[in-house]
Computed example of a mutant assay.
Amino acid sequence: MHFPKITLEKLKELEYQKYGDSPTIKSYTKWKLFEENSPLKLPTEAKAGEVKIKAHVFLSGSEASFNLPAGVELTEGTLGLSSPEESRILGFHFYTLKKAYKLKIVEDLKEPLVIISHLSEKAFISHHVSIEAENVKAPIVIYDLSEKGTKSLVVELKARNADIEILTVGKHTSLSHYLLRASLGERAKVRAFTLIKGGVMSHHREDYSLEGKESQLILRGIPIGVGSAIDYLTNVLQYGEKSKSETKVHGFSYQNGWAVHRGVAKVFESAKNSVSEVISQITIMDEGSLGVSVPMLEVDTGEIEAAAHSSAVRQFDEDALFYLRSRGFGSEEALNLFIHGIGEALSDHLERLRGKARGNIAELIEGLL
């Protein structure tokens, strides 16, 4: 089995979220929907569906297939960075989990390692992938896709003296839970870019622990709620001396959508001469949509190189809307044009990875919007 399990009795005692889990007491995830669509009420087996993207690791429903490149080794198990007793949703994750897969990157990768997690049936399915990387450079692309039911994906990462680039593209129409938990050792550098469109309810969380000296994190996130809901959480803990983290999130809500970002950065006493930054903003595209931005920064050492945080919730630029309407666009057409313009900008930003990701990222981004 190679991963922790939880009993039904213990599972029933767990809460979805403790007050200390986030910068606000209020939870923006609609946990009631997860309770109504939990593994206690839905099947925990599902057939694989079809995805028009080639992958090295393909997890769909209860099935898994692998076509790993040279330099990547496969075993079973986890890295132990997550536990079923942390929360009720993680309890559900481990209660349902059939197998956990561990990847070890032992050589530099010229092409991205592509991982797909997918569900297309009404069931509760858990996928769990762990990645180890030391003394290597490697790009990783994660597609997080759910069409029906409830899907939970946990990705664990341990990096040391490594340069890792992670692109996460999420597209949901149902319920989804995602946890990326990373441990950065000495001189580890992670550049993470996340673009995710919420489904009926999407809980997307990324935790980074900068434990080694001169470890670095550059995080960019774009949560999008278009007639859907996403609660996007980023947590960065800095322990290592001269560590550096930079989190910038810009979310969008549209057509009665929800886009929430809650971001924490904490610099501990041991992280002397470090840099930490959290910038969070949400653009509300129309009336009836919700946007929430809650960044939080805590510094325990007086020997800090730089620390800053900022928050903004903005309405769509009415001047831009007026300009488009004055040129013959209706209000709905103008807003749609603006939203799709975001997709084009993202495509340009991802130009370097687009040709390597075994799929057309531009088309997938267009599908998100």
Results as ranks from 00 to 15, higher is better:
V299L: 07
H118A: 02
D319G: 04
E73K: 12
S228W: 06
H340N: 12
G221W: 12
V154C: 07
H2S: 14
V267C: 08
E134C: 02
A159N: 03
K10N: 13
K171W: 10
P223Y: 11
S126K: 02
A306T: 07
V169E: 11
S202T: 15
P112S: 05
I218K: 11
R354C: 00
G328K: 07
K213L: 11
I53T: 14
S152Y: 09
E333G: 05
A188P: 04
E63R: 07
G291H: 09
I282F: 03
I284L: 04
Y323T: 13
A188C: 04
L81W: 03
P4D: 11
F94T: 07
L364Q: 10
E269R: 11
D163N: 12
H128P: 02
D163T: 05
Y28W: 14
L119Y: 08
I25C: 07
H93I: 11
L180P: 02
L42Q: 09
E76D: 15
G263R: 05
G355R: 13
P295C: 01
L109M: 02
I224A: 11
F268K: 09
K32Y: 13
V260P: 07
I131A: 04
L324V: 07
N360K: 06
A345W: 10
L59S: 01
G225M: 04
E186H: 10
S82T: 15
I131P: 00
A123C: 03
E73Y: 09
G20N: 15
F94E: 03
E165Y: 13
S253A: 14
S243N: 06
I282H: 03
D144Q: 01
H349D: 10
A55V: 10
D317P: 05
E107W: 05
I218H: 10
S87V: 04
T24R: 06
V260I: 15
A133I: 07
L179A: 06
K110D: 15
S202D: 09
A357L: 00
I361C: 00
H93L: 08
E13P: 11
F193C: 13
E344M: 04
T173H: 10
I218R: 14
E318Y: 09
Q281C: 00
I140D: 04
N256R: 14
M201S: 11
N67G: 13
L90R: 06
A229W: 08
G61P: 03
M201T: 05
I361Q: 01
V51I: 14
E344P: 00
K12V: 03
L184K: 03
I279V: 14
I224D: 06
A271F: 01
R181W: 01
S130F: 01
K197A: 13
T75N: 12
G288Y: 10
A357C: 09
S326E: 15
I25R: 13
A138W: 02
R325E: 15
S228G: 03
L369S: 03
G49A: 05
H349L: 06
E36H: 00
A123H: 02
F124N: 03
P39I: 10
A334C: 10
Q17P: 00
